[in-house]
């Protein structure tokens, strides 16, 4: 594992095109899924997907191979989305998404199915999957990182740039929201 991380770091330092091709192939599903969950929009997730890899090429020398590559990759992707949010709304995604604040970020109008909801619904007719799209973006994000990407709490804190205690509190709320959405979908 550590050797692989080091070899990725060396390859990125040299901007090795074959390594980048391999990484894009290898992480395409996980990165796209993460971006889709945090943006809630397929077309936007595609744009951010490409932009993330351009950043990986340009700033690859900054990956030191000491942490898992995917944690660094997700951090880049997430911050591209935050930068976009800042220019769009002149506010940070963190401010918008802090669970302690009254209104956590909702990508789409709650009364209408979100693009993510539609994507999931198209993919599966099961209510349980479609209901994932109804969860707040910040909760989806931590749930995805923890239960799909299987990142450790500390790694998540690094990706999200928040304390581990906040990660946990978001996870608990997210888990409850997910369970609630599931029940709603079943009803």
């Amino acid at each position: 594992m550590r050797n692989e991380m080091k070899s990725i770091a060396r390859g990125l330092q040299k901007r090795d095109p074959d390594l980048l091709d391999r990484l894009i192939e290898q992480y395409q599903y996980r990165l796209f899924r993460y971006l889709l969950y945090i943006t809630g929009d397929k077309a936007r997730a595609e744009d951010f997907f490409q932009e993330t890899w351009i950043r990986v090429l340009e700033r690859g020398h900054q990956y030191d191979g000491k942490s898992r590559f995917e944690a660094w990759l997700f951090a880049i992707a997430r911050h591209l989305v935050i930068d976009w949010q800042r220019t769009k709304k002149a506010q940070s995604l963190d401010a918008l998404t802090d669970p302690e604040q009254e209104t956590p970020m909702q990508i789409a109008n709650e009364s209408e199915p979100s693009p993510l909801h539609q994507v999931l619904a198209q993919e599966s007719e099961q209510n349980v999957q479609a209901s994932l799209g109804r969860i707040g973006a910040i909760y989806r994000e931590v749930l995805v990182l923890r239960f799909q990407e299987e990142l450790q709490i500390e790694e998540m804190a690094g990706v999200l740039n928040i304390p581990a205690s906040t990660v946990k509190s978001r996870l608990y709320r997210g888990l409850e929201a997910l369970r609630g959405a599931l029940q709603e979908g079943a009803a």
Binding site: I24, Y29, E46, I54, L57, L182
Partner: peptide, 30 residues
């Protein structure tokens, strides 16, 4: 547990040629 299982198994359709389009862009930028 059911909710977590649903999250873990939720399938996302990957856009066609996303990887190859990205590889092309990355090579151009390189």
């Amino acid at each position: 547990d059911r909710a977590l299982r649903a999250l873990r198994t939720a399938a996302i359709p990957l856009p066609a040629d996303l990887a190859s389009r990205t590889q092309f862009r990355v090579r151009l930028r390189a």
